[in-house]
């Protein structure tokens, strides 16, 4: 099992904002909702488009390409055309660093 890895700084992401980062070739989206940080795979499970290009509405991320929606906290699909849940990653805050764990 891999350990937590730094992906961004707390100060990089404002409230209600989503940003994309890379760990190796893996695109990771990190968002801030009501002070909490959530990380998920930055790839829509419908057609692999970049989710962070879309809008964040509370805990809901909306893919701007075909309208699929997911819960950023659980990965649950909230709206078609996606049917597969989103991969979400455990997040830990260490000072100003946001750490995530890829299994």
């Amino acid at each position: 099992m891999s350990d937590f890895q730094k992906v961004a700084k707390v100060s990089d992401i404002a409230e209600g904002e989503v940003q994309s980062f890379f760990i190796n070739a893996e695109a990771i989206a990190v968002c801030r909702v009501e002070g909490n940080f959530y990380a998920f795979k930055d790839e829509c499970t419908h057609q692999s488009f970049t989710l962070s290009d879309g809008d964040l509405d509370g805990e809901r991320i909306i893919c701007c390409y075909h309208g699929a929606e997911f819960n950023v906290k659980t990965g649950e699909v909230l709206c078609l055309p996606a049917v597969e849940p989103l991969e979400v990653y455990p997040v830990r805050i260490d000072g100003d660093d946001i750490l995530i764990k890829l299994d």
Binding site: S20, F22, A27, D42, Q47, S48, F49, T50
Partner: peptide, 16 residues
């Protein structure tokens, strides 16, 4: 991804 020959491979990592 909108290019048919690349529709399953996201190259954002190269762009960034």
């Amino acid at each position: 991804l909108s290019d048919e020959e690349w529709r399953f491979t996201n190259l954002d990592v190269l762009r960034r």
